[in-house]
Amino acid sequence: MTDRVPVLKIGDILLVSIQVDLEDQMVMDLQDDLSNRIVDTNAKGVIIDISALEIVDSFVGRMLATNASISRVLGAETIVVGMRPAVAMTLVELGLSLQGVRTALNLERGLKLLRRLSAGRA
């Protein structure tokens, strides 16, 4: 039994706060959970908070991109927030630019961005 990453619902937004280093199985579970929750709750936005992650490998990087694509297909906009400088530099060095994933500096700015997006701005 591996840990699962909690998916929290706040209004029409789902918040995924990743607090521990992800194992491969957790990543797969998260993908399942998230897509199910989006459909169940009819969420319009997803925020993935990775401010606690100190290490992001290419697998996790791809997971972020995949999740963003999945949610978009399901009609929800994904925003990755709180990426640490060191993590951003690692991803760049790995050649991952997270194309198509929206990002924000922190949770607060992420929420603002979602509001703005749903209002048809930005």
Binding site: M83, P85, A88, M89, V92, S97, L98, T103, L105, R109
Partner: peptide, 12 residues
Amino acid sequence: LKTVVAARMMGA
């Protein structure tokens, strides 16, 4: 480009 992409990933 690397610098710009990294800054973007941080949300700027």
